[in-house]
Design a protein around this nucleic acid. Structure first.
Lengths: 138, 138
DNA sequence: TACTTAATGCAATTAAGTTGCATAAACTAT
DNA sequence: ATAGTTTATGCAACTTAATTGCATTAAGTA
């Protein structure tokens, strides 16, 4: 994706255009998998870890990224492939975690099946995490 | 649940009977919701952090507890209501996280719907996390 | 270009997760 | 019941993630 396209994405989310944000967004677009703060720190040693932390947060707030629940201690983030607003994230897809290579990817074409909850419960969002072995590791 | 019952649970999982394990298990049985290491530290100041940490791990290994994926940094744990072995955990139920009170509970009677993944992917487990508002907070 | 506002880098703090080791407690077999 | 073996506990220490304050720098704007 061109630098101009990256900039227009940031602009459309009312984020200032900075080197760090452009680099981080390009990295997410290039990598198909979910990334953690640690991944970014390894990739971009020229940026402070706090800057990367705040970059992730600004992307979260503006709906560019979403957090992916996992069992490990550290958070992982994935691109929002559909339009999300800060208030409402619509991530109706399945996350797959490979138990061999450890990578988490969004299966965008796999829709989360309908689910029911007990009476009196209100559903805001649904997350589905499938773990197993991905095609590359099989 | 009686102290004797608690002990028999530990015995059936080949765990030595200690005060800490009895207290932690009783706490999980009493609380319906998922608990974090921090919850245990607040509840049981008489036990060392590390002891609680290792208690959780021994319960995980022996199939008494399961880890619940979440978006926050810290791990949360829930009771295995069905029989689980160390090798194979079968948690075919839905986890509900309330966005008001923050508590996570296992909806044991709600079964995770079937899911499909792309060709070449192998499924080991499926986790479903629904967030919204629970009956108490609605 | 000057001004306003937001982003960055650095220092520092909190908390979670983890390991090693000496001591204490739980189990086992007399 | 007791001695011996194995495991659990508490303490110290370390690593990493998450988080905040503040001074400086850079981005957007008139």
């Amino acid at each position: 994706m061109s630098q101009e396209n990256l900039k227009s994405i940031l602009k459309s989310h009312e984020l200032r255009i900075t080197d760090c944000r452009l680099d981080v967004m390009a990295y997410f677009l290039q990598e198909k998998n979910a990334l953690s703060q640690g991944d970014l720190e390894n990739k971009f040693t020229k940026y402070d870890r706090v800057t990367l932390y705040r970059t992730l947060n600004s992307f979260l707030d503006s709906g560019i990224l979403h957090k992916i629940p996992n069992e490990a201690g550290s958070a992982t983030y994935g691109l929002c492939h559909h339009t999300c607003s800060p208030d409402h994230h619509d991530h109706n897809h399945i996350h797959f975690k490979c138990n061999r290579c450890g990578q988490i990817e969004c299966l965008d074409d796999k829709v989360v099946p309908k689910v029911t909850v007990p009476n009196g419960y209100q559903i805001d969002g649904v997350n589905m995490i499938v773990d197993g072995v991905c095609a590359k590791c099989a």
